[in-house]
Simulated scan of single mutants.
Amino acid sequence: MTIVLGTPGVGGLSEAVGVLREWQHDGPPTQLHPGDLGWFWRFGAEATAAAVRTWSRGGRILAVGLLDEPELLRMTIAPEARQDEELARRLVEDLAEPERGVFTGKAYVEAPMDALVQDLLLDGGWNADEPWTPLRRDLTAPVEDPDVRIEAIGPERARLRAAVQRAAFGESTFTGERWLAMAAGSPYADARCLVAYDDQGEAVAAVTVWSAGPGKPGLLEPMGVHSEHRGRGYGKAITLAAAAALRELGSSSAIVSTPSANVGAVATYRSAGFLQLPETRDLGAPRG
């Protein structure tokens, strides 16, 4: 059967989220979690649908990609199809040819490290880009207390959550309205937003966590500490709170990924009991 590249439309987003849930496991990083779509949903359902690509055969989705940026496709593949040669070759063709509608200019791809498409892209002249560090914390045992006040955020505190995000990430455009759009997406049914406070009642850190269902890894995306309150342990505290929230949601583990160059973030996650996994790399299209 022919492999078909498509965009799901708003009506097909639930199916894409559903297969991403099914594909999550506690082995090597899958590179795309339903929470990644959930976080992108802050731009609205239509924008999210326009950024998603699916590859299907016989009506069954085999791969899902998210254009997290116009030049970056984050994708994952059904575990049983990662060595499927027909799929891998079709992916390479679609990623390399601008007229296929995935990229129109420069191109970077993030894909599972154990997928055949990685080898084919490298053989085709694609180049390894900056390394990322994935980290994981097992949630079998209870998580230690973060020792700060933690609040679960609902719609009435959306603007506060957004303000902490902007204070943590200087280029962030997150707003209360975008929080509401994110919370309206189907992935947020199994998500939580948390804010940490200092002894004076100031909001100092925030995180959003995304469950993929009971017995599956949950994702931290994003986590940030207010720029005026760094170096005081609030990153560790909010990360512990995130892990505890995912455990309450039934997640088997908590996962996160950060650029390897961000040594402070890596250290923060490790201080909260996360184990550092082998680095992953995006692949950049050949220049020429």
Rank of each mutant, 00 (worst) to 15 (best):
G213Q: 08
S260L: 15
G12N: 03
A81Q: 12
S271P: 06
P29K: 07
P278F: 02
Q200Y: 13
P222E: 04
E151Y: 03
R60L: 12
P222H: 03
L139G: 07
V64L: 06
E177P: 12
A107W: 00
L246H: 05
A191F: 03
G44L: 08
L240G: 05
F169L: 11
N127A: 15
S186D: 14
Y269R: 04
A96E: 01
V164Q: 07
K216E: 10
R74L: 08
W126Q: 02
L13M: 09
L275Q: 09
G59H: 11
I61Q: 02
T133Q: 10
R230M: 14
D68T: 15
R74H: 03
D68P: 03
V209K: 05
P278A: 05
V109F: 02
L246Y: 03
K216H: 13
H33F: 11
E93L: 12
D84Q: 07
A167V: 13
A47C: 03
S227F: 10
G58C: 12
L283N: 00
R270L: 00
A272N: 03
E97G: 01
A265H: 01
N262W: 06
A50V: 02
S271H: 02
T239V: 15
G201P: 15
D282K: 12
H25E: 12
Q24F: 10
A237C: 10
G218P: 13
R149S: 14
V92I: 03
S252L: 02
R137E: 06
G224D: 06
G18P: 05
A88T: 12
M75V: 12
R74C: 10
Y188D: 08
T76E: 02
L277G: 05
D129P: 02
D138M: 05
T7C: 01
G250H: 09
A181G: 08
G9K: 05
G201L: 09
L66C: 06
E15L: 14
A168T: 13
G224R: 07
A49F: 07
A111E: 02
A107K: 01
R270P: 00
E202R: 14
L116S: 07
A111N: 00
A205F: 13
A206N: 13
V209Y: 03
A162Q: 07
P131W: 03
S14T: 15
V164D: 09
D147R: 08
P8L: 05
E93G: 06
Y188S: 14
A163E: 15
T7A: 04
R157L: 10
D123Y: 14
